[in-house]
Amino acid sequence: MTRSFKTSGAPHMPPQTSVANVMLLVLYALVPGVFAYSWFFGPGILIQIILATVFALLFESLMLRWRGRPLKPFINDYSAVVTAVLFALCIPPLAPWWISCIAMLFAIGFAKHLYGGLGQNIFNPAMVGYVVVLISFPQAMTAWIPPLTLSEHSLSLADSLITIFTGQVPVAGGWDTVTQATALDSLKTGIESGRMVTEIRTSPIFGDYGGIGWEWVANWFALGGFFLLYKRVISWQVPIAVIGSVILLSLPFWLADQDSNPLPLQHIFSGALVLAAFFIATDPVSGCVSNKGRLIFGAGVGIITLVIRRWGGYPDGVAFAVLLMNMAAPLIDRYTRPRMYGE
């Protein structure tokens, strides 16, 4: 009359979520931002996302094979896709195809798998890939295009494909006619050459706060970020700390000298700051674990970004800021361990 059963450990309930699920939510959250991006800057970004994803999955499977790990669970976890998409969103939409290839080799091969694969990387893989190509190929990485509204030569999908794969721009005048300095670039060079912020901002590339087009892309990224907060994929500490520290630190400068310091909000809506605040600095693997640690981590990213923008050699410093704070994360974790029950 007795009956036997298979046993398995507690809890005896279906798991609530999975790594793949978490990564998919991040990808969903990026959709509005990507949509806005291609709306303002043409279809180039979509090609870059596809390119980066293909290379990322290629290197992911090669590294998994080489390390003797099972392919299926790790390819299906979408973590490589998240890395690829975040990287693609950081590079100029018309960057040559091999940029993605090199960046993904370093991101997936070096930063991720040589450190032990998923969950083991100290540095944010997307940022490692980005920084490698930014330093190695500065020319290709600074060829930004203005938003379609300002451009005389809008590039079709076919044009974008030709540009990305051949390096030749199929319009009269070539590269010089399609590229333009970004808002952060012109601000930096403008201030360095002694011009006033108000004067610099008369350029049509500026919108209400940041670069025209860019600020709307940032808004849509923020919307995706709120979705992640709502879904509790990310915690509020990091984005609040990143954005809050940028505002707090730039405010006194702006108040002291409005001629050579942009409005704090301009810092928020320029470059990759919003993307970083919600999607990059929130990477749990290379970030901090405790809430207090996350606040410190986020504040560090904000402060370093601002320092690089203000005094450093690069117009934007988000990637460097994230990588520097990645280095500090284990130390921060060590000193911000929460108090245990009854301790």
């Binding site: 976890d77 969950g119 693997v285 674990v289 361990r337 929460p338 245990m340 029950y341």
Partner: peptide, 21 residues
């Protein structure tokens, strides 16, 4: 799968531990 340090475990831990650590 490997731990991705998402911190959910710490959020739900009634003893305020850091289970992943």
């Amino acid at each position: 799968m490997p731990c991705i340090r998402c911190g959910e475990c710490a959020r739900v831990c009634p003893a305020t531990l850091l289970p992943q650590q």
